[in-house]
Design a protein around this nucleic acid. Structure first.
Length: 214
DNA sequence: GTTCTAGAAC
DNA sequence: GTTCTAGAAC
């Protein structure tokens, strides 16, 4: 088998010939601009104002991104005037959660935002709290959803009501991502490594009790 | 955001 | 020797 590396013609003049941000960070934008071009597995729902996609690398059994189709670069570019959009965003999120709970009442959800998102285009995570998924692979993945790095919807809405700008300290929030692995359901702290954490999460899912002794 | 992989940890 | 993490990616 050959390493066919001869595909050098630059395809698709995407938005960033002058911008310095890498292409991968802009991947969400196409879902907002052309939701109709994606399969139902990728785009769960869309209308004129919002798109709901299934996360390409889900970190739990159910993991969606809910986004306004209007271009908003990131959480730091939210303004007070977006409070109306936010309320509808929340309703979209709640709608997905209800739908998923209909499929499996055992699922618990949070909806919210990363303090320091990697992807452009403002997006809200709707993620089930089992965190059982092959795509959850490292400490950063874990801590981004289980430490204060994850901001619940209500917190952001309240911040926006109080201040015109939302800004999180980069240094501080990056340190949160390096914290030890602690269980989000029981008092187990400093879990040895990711494979051990994954077994622990499976146990929680199986016996459905949020208090584990081990 | 992911992939890949060197070398740390076990 | 194998498992696991964490940093580079031009």
């Amino acid at each position: 088998m050959k390493n066919n590396s001869t595909r050098n013609f630059s395809t698709k003049s995407f938005s960033s010939s002058s911008s310095s941000s890498p292409r991968w960070s802009e991947e969400l934008i196409q879902y907002c601009e052309h939701p109709e071009t994606f399969s139902a597995n990728e785009v769960y729902h869309f209308d004129n104002e919002f798109v709901i996609i299934t996360d390409k690398y889900p970190k739990a059994k159910k993991h969606f991104l809910v986004m306004p189709r209007k271009r908003i670069d990131g959480i730091e570019n939210l303004k007070k005037r977006d409070l109306g959009m936010m309320k509808k965003l929340k309703e979209k999120g709640q709608w997905v959660i209800e739908s998923m709970k209909g499929e499996n009442p055992k699922l618990k959800f949070r909806m919210g935002f990363h303090a320091l998102p990697s992807m452009k285009q403002f997006h809200m995570h709707v993620i089930s709290q089992d965190f059982i998924s092959p795509a959850l692979k490292n400490k950063k993945h874990w801590n981004s959803f289980t430490t204060p790095f994850f901001k619940d919807y209500e917190e952001i809405e309240n911040m926006l009501k109080e201040k015109e700008e939302i800004k999180f300290d980069k240094i501080y929030y990056e340190t949160l991502l390096k914290k030890p692995l602690n269980c989000h359901l029981c008092n187990k702290k400093d879990i040895k490594n990711i494979p051990t954490l994954k077994r622990h999460l499976e146990d929680h899912w199986d016996d459905d009790s949020s208090e584990k002794s081990e």
